[in-house]
Amino acid sequence: MRAVDAIRARFHASAHIPAPLAGDADHALAGDVPVPAAVLVAITDRPEPGLLLTRRNEALRKHPGQIAFAGGRADPTDTGPVDTALREACEEIGMPRDLVSVIGCDAPYRTITNFSIVPVVAVVPPDLPLVPLEFEVADIFEVPLAHVLDPANQIQAEAEFRGSMRRFYEIMWQDRRIWGATAAMIVNLSRRIGA
């Protein structure tokens, strides 16, 4: 059995999924309505699968230089989270929609910036000639899936935000710091597929 087939089977066979990290709803401003969004959690089809991530452009006003999945806010014309994730991944990194095999949607994650993000988990061919949308994406890279899904590499940290302490996860890989919502969605996937 291919590694990605085993991941697909575990994703759908999870009868007792541990409660996912829900996000930062408790830090949102009162009355804020979350903005729908989706990201593509693209797993590369290799004997040892990888996970595609981006580094946001340093010139961006929000979250400059941070590690993220390709994705973003839903458009009114999107038919749902899968459509949003595929459209955004095509726009941001040139991911061909017809080469994405969707496994399913994981639990939504609420961010401090008031987005309700649906992670769309999918398998993609390895070594695609992806091209970053320079205004938004500075770099596209692949991390070993086993590394980021390993709970030993998912470190809890905390920082003060709006007068109270906020806990979050961070995952280091080489010189890259994956943290916040991206790390939390990886932790949720790890818990779901029992990595």
Rank of each mutant, 00 (worst) to 15 (best):
K62F: 12
L133G: 04
H27T: 13
A22N: 09
C105S: 12
R56W: 06
L133D: 11
M1A: 11
D45V: 12
I171C: 10
Q156L: 12
M185V: 10
G180T: 08
P18Y: 01
M185T: 06
I7S: 03
P36K: 14
P126F: 05
G80N: 07
A38F: 00
L130G: 00
G71H: 07
D78R: 02
I103V: 01
A70W: 07
Q174I: 09
Y169C: 15
L40T: 06
P126T: 02
Y109G: 01
S190M: 00
D5H: 05
S190Y: 00
S14K: 12
A3G: 02
A138R: 11
A25Q: 11
P126I: 02
W173Y: 15
P132S: 00
P34V: 07
N188C: 05
E160S: 05
T84Y: 11
G71S: 10
L149R: 10
V148W: 09
E91A: 08
P119Q: 03
D26R: 04
D150F: 11
A13E: 15
A13Q: 13
Q156Y: 09
Q154I: 08
M172N: 14
G163W: 09
A9E: 02
C105Y: 03
P36R: 08
P144S: 01
A146I: 03
V124D: 02
T54M: 10
V82G: 04
P76I: 06
F11T: 00
L21K: 14
P47G: 01
E134M: 04
E170A: 07
I155K: 08
I186V: 11
L130I: 02
A159V: 13
E142L: 11
D150S: 11
A146F: 00
I93S: 05
S101M: 10
F141C: 02
R87F: 00
Q156W: 12
Q154S: 06
A85D: 04
V82I: 15
R192P: 13
F161C: 11
A152Y: 13
V131G: 01
T182V: 07
A74V: 15
